[in-house]
Amino acid sequence: MAEQESGQALDAAFFIRWLTACAAAVEREASRLTDLDAAIGDADHGSNLQRGFRAVAEVLAKDAPATPGAVLTLAGRQLISTVGGASGPLYGTLLRRTGKALGDAAEVDRAALADALGQGVAAVAQLGGAAKGDKTMLDALEPAVDALATSYEGAARAAEEGAVATTPLLARKGRASYLGERSIDHQDPGATSAALLVTTLAEIAGQAPAAGSGQ
């Protein structure tokens, strides 16, 4: 793997490509996400994100904002307005806060993105009242943000590993928490979709982990 420069410039078009690719990835993985949700939730995580990311791809295709911050803020607002459930406000807040943290810079680098994403993830934790280890999307997002300071590849790997590591956990937040001990031995759908978004980021940055790794 070539050494990655934090200086690789990420412009609005990069973030539009990422979110559009996320829409395609969610489309591809929707039934898997819904199946994971059926085991410990209410069997709609895939279809909810599908609806939201379709709307995101649509609005970005129609009206492309000029800065990375504006792209993420618009996408976040779109998710809040279309997804519902818990994942709408949570993913919407993640993108909105990350976008806000990027400000109005025309281009950002990986370090700036890692920093902004960290603020987005902190906002998600605050909104949902969850912490790492509660079997939520934070179990994928927090390690991903830490690793993103170093590389996209590492972030993707950390997110995947974080999602897989939710399997033995007892759910403490969200609908899976109603199951108590019966939530154990199932991978968390929210952490799984979060890992999907981070993996897609690495792919668009041209720094995806080698096929088969981290799965």
């Binding site: 069997a43 279809s47 519902g84 459930g85």
Partner: peptide
């Protein structure tokens, strides 16, 4: 909202 999904703030 959608089936078994909270409505949105709008």
């Amino acid at each position: 909202g959608e089936v078994f999904t909270s409505p949105v703030p709008d």
